[in-house]
Amino acid sequence: MSAIHVTTTINNDATEFLCAPDETLLDVLRDRLGLTGSKEGCGSGDCGACSVMLDGRLVCACLVLGAEAEGRTVATIEGMAVGETLHPLQRKFLEHAALQCGICTPGFLIAAKALLERHPDPTEEEARYWLAGNLCRCTGYDKIIRAVLDAAAEMREAG
């Protein structure tokens, strides 16, 4: 199997890597680039723990090939905080205790950020449907939804 050379942009940094043709973007991020924030819960598109943005679209990195990232832009959880300053969603997840083991958290944060970019003022129902592809086995969804709606309110006020 010949390795594929890929040139891409990850969290605004120009990045190059070699990968096998059938290697997923999730494996590339975690095993080749050391970006282990994106998690593997299922590897089959069901849990959303591997959520990343690909050219501005929310996707499961476990269902994208590394080779597909050529010339595209990828955003992962590692790019969410600015230096030491947490994104409002990250802060609200802490305040609302919206995580326990934390495996699902990066995926929820990426997915919730994508939601708020499109719908700054989602209803609870909209938020629950948008996040239906993110599974959490510990926390229960209530605290997560409260954290997302609270962050949305704060971000709207901050304008």
Partner: peptide
């Protein structure tokens, strides 16, 4: 079909 993530693809 699927979730928001699946819809993106």
């Amino acid at each position: 079909i699927g979730s928001t993530q699946i819809q993106g693809r």
